[in-house]
């Protein structure tokens, strides 16, 4: 039995060369607005995942955990022959210290990944006027903002979390018998919290800057400039205020000033989450590192919330479909 629409002899069906331009109705179901922000997020995620250089950045963000994993592997083989490092930090904080160290090395790469996704996200829409189309669809500005934010957050969060989870799995499998879980039962939550808070900080900052630009390049340059300039200013302040002091009371303040930058705040928050002691150069004793605790959580949280909320508010103020030129 031959399908009446198909050509005889199994040949493909005959298609009219004249296009069928009749209007057809859509009678299928319509989804509710819930989670529509995720569509906006997916666009950003898919776009960046198609770029080859993005994967180079991801590779860059993986190596710190690879290196730490290698140290752990060496330690398991060489034991006490390995020189003193973070691997034999304070009891009960060995793995947290290692993960924090890896995060510290990874942070630059997370910043660049966040920059590559976030700086262009709204600026590209401003440039192409895509907001006029987006915001004529049944989504709100909040859906749009949340979608853009989630796009950046998800990518940075995944880049921060996945290598950490791999290392965690390695540690879990290799050091189970050494009391890995018993010594640091909360480590997995610390990893999740650290990855999420860094990703949220970067996402908010870059989205906030991106919303105010019509050029992804300019938004990227400005964001990077802010990030590095605040770091340089904090370092200069740190050196100027505490460079010659060796008083132990100054160490706490010195660490606080040293982290009075965008990157510093994010790192300080993660440091608080891991709650570890870090051996670092301190004022007046540059070549005699001291064990120091994280800066005060209260100050850090205030600064962190200022970055996150400030970025989101800046973006929300600027998102509109129409470029209103006042005269």
């Amino acid at each position: 039995m031959t399908d009446p629409g198909s050509a005889p002899g199994g040949a493909p069906p005959v298609v009219s060369p004249i296009a069928d331009l009749t209007y057809r109705h859509y009678d299928g179901p319509l989804n509710s607005r819930a989670f529509r922000f995720w569509i906006v997020a997916l666009v950003g995620i898919r776009q960046v995942m198609r770029k080859w250089w993005f994967w180079l950045l991801v590779l860059g963000s993986v190596w710190p955990y690879g290196l730490i994993g290698f140290f752990f592997f060496l330690e398991s083989r060489l034991g006490d022959d390995l020189p003193r490092t973070f691997l034999n930090a304070a009891p009960g904080a060995k793995y947290s210290t290692a993960f924090f160290q890896a995060f510290d090395w990874q942070m630059f790469w997370l910043m660049v990944i966040g920059l590559s996704v976030g700086a262009a996200s709204i600026a590209a829409d401003n440039k192409t006027n895509a907001l006029q189309v987006y915001l004529a669809k049944p989504i709100t500005k909040t859906d749009y903002l949340l979608g853009k934010w989630m796009g950046v957050f998800s990518v940075v969060f995944a880049a921060a979390l996945l290598p950490a989870l791999l290392l965690y799995t390695y540690c879990l499998l290799s050091f189970w018998s050494n009391g890995f879980l018993r010594q640091e039962p909360w480590l997995i939550f610390k990893i999740l919290g650290a990855s999420a808070s860094a990703a949220a900080g970067f996402a908010s900052l870059f989205i906030g800057v991106s919303a105010w630009s019509r050029s992804p390049m300019m938004a990227g340059a400005f964001s990077a400039g802010m990030y590095f300039a605040s770091g340089i200013v904090a370092t200069i302040l740190w050196a100027a205020l505490y460079g010659r002091s060796s008083a132990s009371t100054d160490i706490t303040n010195a660490v606080l000033v040293q982290h009075a930058s965008i990157g510093g705040v994010l790192k300080a928050l993660v440091w608080n989450i891991y709650d570890v002691t870090v051996r670092m150069p301190t004022p007046g004793r540059m070549f005699m590192p001291t064990d120091v605790r994280a800066p005060s959580l209260g100050f850090v949280l205030v600064a962190y919330l200022a970055i996150v909320i400030g970025g989101l508010v800046a973006a929300r103020l600027r998102i509109r479909a129409v470029e209103v030129v006042t005269g």
Binding site: L30, S32, R36, I39, Q47, A124, T128, A130, K137
Partner: peptide, 28 residues
């Protein structure tokens, strides 16, 4: 709404652009 000005992403295909906006419009 079809705006007068360009409002398209050069990197996307025509199909993916319309599909994305169909999803935003709530098409299942």
């Amino acid at each position: 709404y079809c705006p007068e000005i360009e409002a398209l992403y050069d990197d996307m295909t025509g199909r993916s652009f319309v599909t994305m906006l169909a999803a935003m419009a709530g098409i299942a």
